[in-house]
Nucleic acid binder design. Sequence first.
DNA 1: CATGGAAATTAACCCGGGTTAACGACACGG
DNA 2: CCGTGTCGTTAACCCGGGTTAATTTCCATG
Lengths: 197, 197
Amino acid sequence: MTVIATTLMAKTVLEQLGSGALPDWHRVESAIRVKRLRTGDRLFRADDQHPYVYFVHQGIIKLVYETADGKEWIKAFAEEGRFFASLTALEPGGRTSFSACAACDAAVEQLPYQVLLALAETHPTWQKVLRRSFEIYGFRKETREKELLLLSAEERYRRFIEERGALSARLADKDIASYIRVTPVALSRIKKRQPSV
Amino acid sequence: MTVIATTLMAKTVLEQLGSGALPDWHRVESAIRVKRLRTGDRLFRADDQHPYVYFVHQGIIKLVYETADGKEWIKAFAEEGRFFASLTALEPGGRTSFSACAACDAAVEQLPYQVLLALAETHPTWQKVLRRSFEIYGFRKETREKELLLLSAEERYRRFIEERGALSARLADKDIASYIRVTPVALSRIKKRQPSV
DNA sequence: CATGGAAATTAACCCGGGTTAACGACACGG
DNA sequence: CCGTGTCGTTAACCCGGGTTAATTTCCATG
């Protein structure tokens, strides 16, 4: 069945992080809920209390900051096989700082963070899985910070196309613009500058 | 002695992260080396192989990205009581992506990451300490990303002064400018705009 | 096939911050 | 006491990207 396939997929990814079999996996499995999303559907909104971790089974999820004056800037894209969550929402009593929205039809698995925390308290293997997850997350955010600090808008665009070609081909230009942190108008100008690609 | 005091300080911080006593602490203690720095001294440079974790005992360390054309943009400041490291350099075979430089006379404790990894493999408590550390690191980077994506240069400056007043009072304006990601000239203009503060 | 709506493009204008350069304020060493 | 260097400020000019708005392309739906 579909459900079994999806949880197995998440399991495989997690086992790599912990470098071995995961004790009490059934606890995770029974806590997972699969959510199907249509393009534009929201998984959660900024400022929700929402201590869940997600795994993308299919599609692309946009993680979006929304400003007071109605603008949206995309923090990250989560594709198939990737986990995501709002770190601030995982802290006790914390709230999300961004929204999650389907960039195309998608299916995700939702898991209460509490389940992972409980497993981590009793199993070193699970503690290690969490440690590695956060390590990788920090690694990604560090890269993003570096790009925002050092690169011009045009360089950010070129690099995004270069390094995430498969992803960018599936996205609307306006979403790429929002991730690059320029307006769609500016992106259109940037693209025109170098017609040789 | 000074050395004992410093390692005790790091111990206290780590025990909070692990929420309890740390087994085999003596292994950490015997691996720690204290480094004293004069203003402008570098702890490591971008692209070094340097799998160490640092704890700031005294002073302020600037973490700096250096561009090909000789410009410097400050990624973060590490003050007293804070840990820092280059995540990319902690991965096996990895290298640092930025430099660390003393913003004023400083003293830091240096610990090979290998020691922490080994402790984490044998003690769940240490695994948890690492997990919490990376969690907090991710949390910080998320905040920084949000500021860079959503705020104007002026807003970034105001917020920095507001939220890190004690730190900013100890820094040269040019370093604040570099962190805010504007030139010193631009910062001077920004400061002039609102003379009421 | 016609039509409404979103996305992408293009043009015109504006503005914040980069760049360069000149200048004053200090600190430091000789 | 006078150089020398660094830092902060100010001015003048430039440019990339924001803003607004008009136009086109492309679907999706009736």
